[in-house]
């Protein structure tokens, strides 16, 4: 079971169709079952039986999730693999001590992999879809895995299987979700 967390401004919003459902379709196509829950409703027991968590993105104008950091405090103690997409990466950066600043990217952007990691095993560049008004300028303890000309694009926690990607992998880079989930399948995400 993969838990998809909806970070949009309210439960069952119009953003759910655009930012959660496309990720759910990728995950289900890979043979996993999914469950979706709004970030307000994530409880301590929510992650029981969950193999991995994906924090999904939000509309460009929607940064309401940043106002309620206590809703994400479970990330600090969880050992479950987590992939944060866009708003999800911003959340992860904030929770683990990083800093966000205004940085707008809308549309296709070139991303360069700068750090070795199981999720990005080779140094290479790829084009990805971006939709954000903030970016992580100080990653805190997080390791930087990839960057664009404008900002940090991929981070990983130094000791936990927690990743953040600033780009939207559900648009033209489904392989990133696939690779993340294949690592959870093998229980192979080691620091």
């Amino acid at each position: 079971m993969i838990l998809l967390i909806d970070l949009c401004y309210r439960e069952d919003s119009l953003g759910f169709d655009e930012y959660v459902l496309p990720v759910a379709r990728i995950v289900e196509r890979l043979g996993f079952r999914t469950r979706s829950v709004h970030f307000h409703a994530v409880s301590a027991g929510e992650c029981s039986g969950v193999k991995a968590v994906i924090l999904c993105g939000t509309p460009l104008a929607d940064n309401a999730f940043l106002d309620e950091p206590e809703d994400f405090s479970w990330l600090k103690t969880s050992r479950i693999p987590v992939l944060g997409v866009c708003a999800g990466m911003e959340t992860i950066c904030r929770i683990f001590g990083g800093k966000l600043e205004p940085c707008i990217e809308i549309g296709m952007t070139e991303i360069r992999v700068t750090g070795r990691d199981p999720l990005f095993p080779e140094s290479h560049s790829f084009s990805a879809y971006e939709l954000h008004t903030l970016a992580c300028t100080d990653p805190g303890p997080m390791k930087i895995i990839a960057v664009s000309d404008r900002c940090i694009q991929v981070v990983r926690h130094p000791t936990k299987p927690v990743y953040g990607v600033m780009f939207h992998p559900e648009v033209r880079n489904e392989w990133a979700v696939e690779r993340f989930l294949s690592m959870t399948r093998k229980d192979g995400i080691s620091p």
Binding site: G15, P59, L60, A61, I104, E170
Partner: peptide
Amino acid sequence: QRLCRELGLWCFNPLWH
């Protein structure tokens, strides 16, 4: 999306992917 951002509007694409 860029136009909406410029004009301070939200943008929704409920059929996206």
